[in-house]
Amino acid sequence: MTVLKASRRKASTKAEQRAEMIEQILDAAELLFSRHGLYGVTLKDVAKQVGVHHTLINYYFDDKKALFNEVFARRAVVTSERRMRMLEEYEQASAGQPTVEGALRAFLDTDLDLYIEGGESWKNYGALASQVANTPEWGAAMMDEHFDPVVLRLIGLLKQALPGCAEENIFWGYHFVSGALMLTLARTGRVDKLSGGLCRSEDFAAVKQRMSTFMAAGFLAICRKEEPE
């Protein structure tokens, strides 16, 4: 019995060490990919960042794209599940009468909170996601795979909130929302320079305070244009 317990503890320790090493690799790769993109990073770069020999990276991941995919998927599942849950809760709370801004806040504010509360690692992921979203060759497929269900859930709520709005305008509206969110997550610093420091691209709390209200007004404006005079 004692030998069996000791064996289990040892196995557990090895499993924990493996999990910890994988997390270190993913964190290092996430940082590098967020700054230099898929093609600007090598497995040797990741190994150097972690402080291990590059063969160890190959032990855990078949190639760089496999590592990149795992980095992207790790947090994608968190934000997708969290937003889906909030959209479902909002739909129930609205009792069949959602508003445009309410739906957008369930979607956008929930996501922005992750970057506000999650520290630099989540902000690195946000920058990475903005790169993926703007890479049509393979990034669009990754976005489709991980985010289509939650985006379509938002679209469904917006259709409820805007029953007279042409479907194409709702999809265009989401397109504009997505573009603004991706630019925010990229943290380019451009708004800092344009505003003379009045606004900061790092200030996700300021974005959260304004974005849903601004975008809701846009949805309502393009839908009002459809109404007969």
Rank of each mutant, 00 (worst) to 15 (best):
H146K: 05
L162D: 06
N169W: 01
P163N: 01
M142R: 03
G179P: 08
G164E: 06
K159W: 07
F171D: 13
I155D: 03
Q160C: 07
H146E: 06
A161N: 01
E168A: 13
A161E: 00
L154V: 12
P149Y: 02
I170A: 03
V151W: 01
D144L: 12
E145I: 06
V177W: 04
M182I: 08
G156I: 00
F147P: 04
P163R: 00
A180E: 00
F176R: 06
F147Y: 14
N169E: 07
A161Q: 01
A140C: 03
L181M: 15
D148V: 07
F171N: 09
V150S: 15
D148L: 05
V151P: 04
M142L: 15
I155G: 04
C165Q: 00
F171C: 09
F176D: 10
R153Y: 04
A166Y: 06
L154F: 11
M182T: 03
K159D: 08
L154T: 13
F176M: 14
E145S: 13
A180I: 11
M143T: 09
F171H: 14
N169M: 10
G156C: 04
M143Y: 13
L152M: 15
V151I: 14
L162N: 01
R153M: 10
E168V: 11
E167L: 03
R153F: 03
A141R: 14
A161K: 04
M182S: 09
E167I: 03
G164V: 11
Y174W: 13
V177H: 04
A161I: 00
H175A: 11
R153D: 12
G164F: 12
I155T: 08
G164L: 12
L152S: 15
P163M: 03
N169V: 05
A140W: 07
R153L: 13
G179V: 02
Q160L: 08
A180H: 10
F147M: 05
V177L: 13
E168R: 08
Y174P: 03
L154E: 15
F176S: 07
E145D: 10
M182K: 08
D148H: 10
A180T: 09
S178Y: 13
H175N: 13
I170F: 00
N169D: 11
A161W: 01
A141G: 01
F147N: 14
A140L: 12
P149Q: 09
V150I: 10
F176N: 06
E167W: 00
D144A: 06
G156R: 02
D144M: 14
S178L: 05
G179L: 00
N169Q: 10
Q160K: 07
S178P: 03
